[in-house]
């Protein structure tokens, strides 16, 4: 069975992002870019399924600028077999990403598509769901456990008040949550081996998809600055502050 994993290149989790002076976007000039952490989990899960003999081939797909190749190489060093870059300079929103992925799925015909539940840059949490709708496939979102058996996949999801397990008929979409697994480190020899794995390039035009944004960003602003803490001298003073200043009592 073939698995397809989508990986996004995002601003590194540890970078303190700054908003551009004109408020149009965050400034990503010269900042460290890495694989979206939820996508790392998706790649890891696919590799584990392959190691367990459930998956025979892993294809990773990334959409965006040329440097997304690095993200694909990382995924291949983790264990994916080949990569596809849908290259475009255009800003991509979830619907466009889902349409592009659908086009890739139509070509590749995987039985399982694994995506991160969201990307840490826009926190949209939409692509997996939109892709499932476009394909008409079942979806198991926020997976904390994935079990593939015969022609179905059981996905355990963390929901309010406990765990829910859904059984999906393949082909299916799975999106990963934080607790699904702990991604492996990349071995140096595997980085070198990954350079020799095939990486195909295509474009939105080749795939017949118009990626133009449907939403307009009005403004991007910094979160309000937190004011410094103060020490109170007594319980009374604390209670008074909670009542009068914080107004929580």
């Amino acid at each position: 069975m073939k698995a397809l994993v989508a990986v996004k290149r995002v601003v590194d989790y540890n970078v303190k992002v700054r908003v551009k002076a004109d408020g149009s976007d965050v400034d990503i000039g010269n900042v460290k870019m890495s694989m979206n952490p939820f996508d790392e989990i998706a790649v890891e899960e696919a590799v584990r399924l392959k190691e367990a003999g459930k998956v025979s081939e892993i294809v990773v797909v990334s959409l965006g600028v040329k440097q997304c190749e690095e993200t694909l190489r990382t995924a291949m060093a983790m264990g994916a077999d080949r990569g596809i870059l849908v290259e475009t300079e255009a800003p991509l929103q979830p619907l466009a990403v889902a349409k592009l992925l659908k086009a890739v799925v139509d070509k590749e015909q995987p039985q399982l598509v694994i995506l991160g539940k969201q990307a840490i840059d826009d926190d949209a949490n939409q692509t997996g769901q939109m892709l499932a709708a476009l394909l008409g496939w079942p979806q198991g979102t926020f997976a904390s456990k994935v079990v593939v058996a015969d022609s179905k996949v059981d996905v355990t999801r963390e929901i309010d008040g406990g765990l829910e397990t859904v059984a999906l008929k393949l082909p299916a979409i799975v999106t990963t949550d934080l607790r699904l697994n702990e991604p492996r480190y990349v071995k140096l020899p595997n980085i070198m081996a990954a350079k020799k794995k095939p990486l195909d390039k295509t474009t939105p035009a080749d795939l017949g998809v118009d990626p133009a944004p449907r939403l307009t960003v009005l403004k991007v602003a910094e979160p309000a600055k937190r004011s410094a803490g103060v020490k109170v001298a007594s319980v009374q003073e604390l209670v008074a502050k909670l009542k009068n200043e914080a107004k929580v009592l």
Partner: peptide, 9 residues
């Protein structure tokens, strides 16, 4: 054996 970091994390 060797490992290389792929992100700041």
């Amino acid at each position: 054996d060797g490992i290389v970091s792929q992100s700041e994390q």
